[in-house]
Design a protein around this nucleic acid. Structure first.
Lengths: 188, 188
DNA sequence: TACCGCATGTAAACGGTTACATGATTAC
DNA sequence: GTAATCATGTAACCGTTTACATGCGGTA
C-alpha cells in the first residue's frame, strides 16, 4: 500500500502536520497499527523533496513550529496515477481501511468495486471459518482454534453486513448512466 | 509478539510442518497478514537450533519430505516464560488474535484478563469513533473519514459483543466451552 | 503445454520500529 | 517534581517481504 501515497492521500482531505496525521490515525490503532514518527516524518520529507507536497511553517508559541503540509498539483497527479495502477493490489483489512479513508480520490465506480472485492474476500474466508468440524474424538480440545474461529466469524458477519449496506448506499446515491450498465462483478 | 514464539505456541496444539502452519494461518489472512515462507522457514530453523522444537522427516512420495515439528520440553518451558513476561504487551487486533490462538497456553485467569484488556481498548476507541461531528459547514465532504468511521464502528460493536459473550462464557467455569460459540444472532 | 498445488529453502532489499535527542507547557 | 502532551527529528537495528531456485504430480 506504500505509506507514502497513503499519507499523500490523507493530505488531500486537508493540510496537516506529521503530528496531526498520527493523531487522526490513532483512532484506528486497535484495527491497524498506525505508523510511528520514525516512519511518518521521513515519508513527509520525501514527499516534499519530490514536490508532491508543499510545507507551511506555522509558528507555535514555545513549541517547535508546526509544519503543515499540503498536496501540490503534481502531488494530486501522482496520487491519481498511483490509485489507478494499484487497483488490483491485495485487500487485507489494512489496505482496505486505508483505501476507504482515501475514498474521495476514487471514482464512485472504483469505490464500489473496491467494496465488492473486499466483500468477496471476506465471504470466501468466512466459509473457511464455518468448517469447525475436527471435533468428535478430541472433545473440547484446541480451545485456541475454537476461539479464533468464533471471533473471526463474528467480525466477518459484521463486516459483510456493513459492506452490503455501504454498497447499496453508494449505488443509490447517484443513479447515473454507468451504474445501470455496470455488471455486478464476481461474488459467489 | 515475536513470530518465533507464536509459531512455537501453534505447535503446542499439534505437530506441523511449515507448510501446514501457513495453511492454518491463511484462514485469517483477511484480518491479519500471515507470514510468508521467507519468515516461516528461518523461524523454524532457529527454534530447532535452540532446541525448542524437534523435527521428524516424513517421507512423501515424489515430493520433498515433510518436516514435521513438535515442541520439546524446553520449548514448552520457554513458551511459558515468554507468555508470562509478555502479558503487558499491546493488544492490537493482530497480537490479540495471535494470543487467542494460543489460548491453551494461558491460564483461565490470564485468558479472561486478556479479553478484558482488549475489551477496554476497543471500547475506548469506539468512543473516539462516535464523534462524527465536524459536519455542518462542510456538508457531505470527507467521505473517506465518514466511511472509515462507520466501518470502524460496525466492527467495534461486533467485537465488543463477541468479547462480552466470550468473557461471560469463560468466567462460568462449570459451563462447557461451546457456550462461547452460541451466537446471539447479529442484526443484519 | 502450461499452470497450479505441494513442499522446501536462501539472500538481497525494503520498510518500519525502537530508542534516542531536544525542549517548552500544562496538569497532577 | 514528575509525568504527559505537544512537536520535530535521526540512525541503527530487525523483521519481513520479494524474488529466486528446485522439482514432482495432477489438472485444464
Amino acid at each position: 500500500m506504500s505509506i507514502r501515497y497513503f499519507i499523500l492521500g490523507l493530505l488531500t482531505r486537508q493540510p496537516m502536520s506529521g503530528y496531526d496525521i498520527k493523531r487522526c490515525l490513532e483512532d484506528f490503532e486497535w484495527l491497524i497499527s498506525s505508523p510511528s514518527f520514525g516512519t511518518l516524518y521521513p515519508a513527509l520529507h520525501m514527499l516534499l523533496e519530490d514536490g508532491l507536497v508543499s510545507m507551511d511553517l506555522v509558528p507555535n508559541e514555545g513549541r517547535p513550529p508546526r509544519k503543515v503540509y499540503s498536496v501540490t498539483l503534481a502531488g494530486r497527479q501522482a496520487l491519481q496515477g498511483w490509485v489507478d495502477e494499484s487497483l488490483e493490489d491485495d485487500l487485507s483489512l489494512k489496505s482496505f481501511l486505508m483505501r476507504l479513508m482515501l475514498a474521495e480520490n476514487l471514482s464512485q465506480a472504483e469505490l464500489v468495486d473496491c467494496l465488492q472485492q473486499r466483500r468477496s474476500q471476506v465471504a470466501l474466508h468466512q466459509r473457511c471459518l464455518e468448517e469447525d468440524p475436527p471435533e468428535g474424538e478430541e472433545g473440547g480440545a484446541d480451545l485456541g482454534r475454537h476461539l479464533a474461529q468464533g471471533y473471526g466469524r463474528s467480525i466477518a458477519a459484521a463486516e459483510l453486513a456493513w459492506l452490503d449496506r455501504a454498497i447499496e448506499g453508494l449505488s443509490q446515491t447517484s443513479i447515473s448512466l454507468d451504474s445501470v450498465e455496470r455488471e455486478t462483478p464476481v461474488q459467489a
